[in-house]
Computed example of a mutant assay.
Amino acid sequence: MNKRTALYEKHLASNAKVIDFGGWDMPLHYGSQLNEHHIVRKDAGVFDVSHMTVVDLNGERVIEFLQYLLANNVSKIVGKTGKALYTCMLNEKGGIIDDLIVYYQAEQEFRMVVNAATRDKDLAWIEQHASNFAVSVTERTDLAMLAIQGPQAIEKITPLLPDALRDTALNLKPFTACWDDNLFIARTGYTGEDGFEIMLSNEQAPAFWDALLNANIAPIGLGARDTLRLEAGMNLYGSDMGETDTPLESNLAWTIGWKPAERNFIGRDVLEAQKANGEHSVLVGLVLKGKGVLRGHQAVYVDEAGGKGEITSGTYSPTLGVSIAFARLPAGVYEEVKVEIRNKQIPAQVVKPPFVRHGKACIDI
């Protein structure tokens, strides 16, 4: 039997189409994935993301531990209460075990949010290395997590925030968080729109969900979440990256904390060798120039000699009205490629993601 979040019955009450997602029963949509996408781009929607894994890390050597465990350097956020950092957790070969967000709460306290489908291997890897630093690892299965996203999200949620946290929450800068004993509020998201991600107890979640819907914040399923994140140029673990792909091969070089040079994080030697030779594959954005829809695993031809790569994620962009994708290609710099769709090679423009941010196009079509 699949796992269910504290909001499962609420999804059924809103006529959600429920699917299996990483061992969880989750809402794909509540009637129209397309409408839900546009709601988040133009108004405000709420996602149940309680399937994500929340982990609290504590210990005198927790900073030292995270500097070793993560490719990005947590010293960037140390001393900045509530500050968040996006990073990858790598294996010894530089492959991405998972991408995650880590929050600085106090000198010996951090909170980490990792993907649902990778929970078991993530926890095993974290605990394996945490033991060497005497760091405690606590999975917060008592918490639900909601993402309220869209240009009207903050305005609509403001009356629902507790008095003691309201002003602080409304003044949060992107990638920062605040909290009290009941709510953890972060100005983060996976849509390219403004908003909050809020953690609260499983017991509180249903009533808070109802309050959000009563504030005309629409429920949004995982289907729209996927098209929104692709438009926003955000990778999906398991599609655009995995354990055989390094950050340099996944358009995530910006998440590597190269300095200081003496910081020895897992996989660093492999990344340094890749960076030096420059012969690794690259992840790029594509916009289809002809008819068709870009889908995962379609072949991408980069030259007349038959060199090719592959689409990792692809979809029709509801905001742009064209088909867009991520593709992993051989080392090189490209302006145009051809994608095989139904035995035809259709031209596609190579672009630098994101495609859409804050409801507006970031590329020339």
Rank of each mutant, 00 (worst) to 15 (best):
H280L: 08
I198Q: 02
E109Y: 14
I154K: 06
M145G: 13
E304W: 12
I157D: 05
L213H: 11
I97N: 06
T81E: 12
V284A: 11
D142A: 04
K275G: 04
H37V: 01
S250F: 04
A169E: 07
F355E: 14
T191K: 01
N171H: 13
T191N: 02
A16Q: 10
K289C: 15
L143V: 10
L170S: 00
E92G: 03
L200Q: 01
N277T: 08
G307K: 09
N202S: 06
N235P: 04
S250V: 01
A253I: 05
D56P: 12
Q33H: 13
M89P: 09
S250C: 09
W254H: 10
N235K: 07
G314T: 08
S281W: 07
K360Q: 10
S317Y: 03
M52H: 12
S323Q: 00
F21D: 11
L34M: 11
E36A: 08
I198H: 04
N132I: 12
Y237V: 13
V55S: 12
E304A: 11
A253E: 10
H280I: 03
A331M: 07
I101S: 13
V46T: 03
N182F: 11
G278Q: 05
L170T: 04
G359K: 06
R61N: 06
S131E: 15
I324R: 15
G332N: 07
A44E: 00
G221C: 03
F326H: 06
D303A: 03
A116L: 04
R225E: 15
D180K: 12
A124T: 07
D245K: 15
G45E: 00
K17H: 09
G223H: 05
M241G: 00
E243F: 08
I324W: 06
L90R: 00
Y237G: 15
L146N: 05
R268P: 06
A134Q: 03
L294W: 02
M145I: 15
G223Q: 09
E197R: 03
C88F: 09
I341V: 04
D20E: 09
L70S: 07
D245Y: 15
K352L: 10
Q33F: 02
L286I: 08
A84K: 11
Y190C: 02
D210N: 04
K121I: 07
R328V: 00
R166I: 00
M241Y: 08
E262N: 15
R119Y: 04
Q204M: 14
D48K: 12
A177E: 01
C362H: 10
D56R: 05
K156V: 02
R263Q: 05
K17G: 04
Q204G: 02
V54N: 14
S136P: 10
V114M: 01
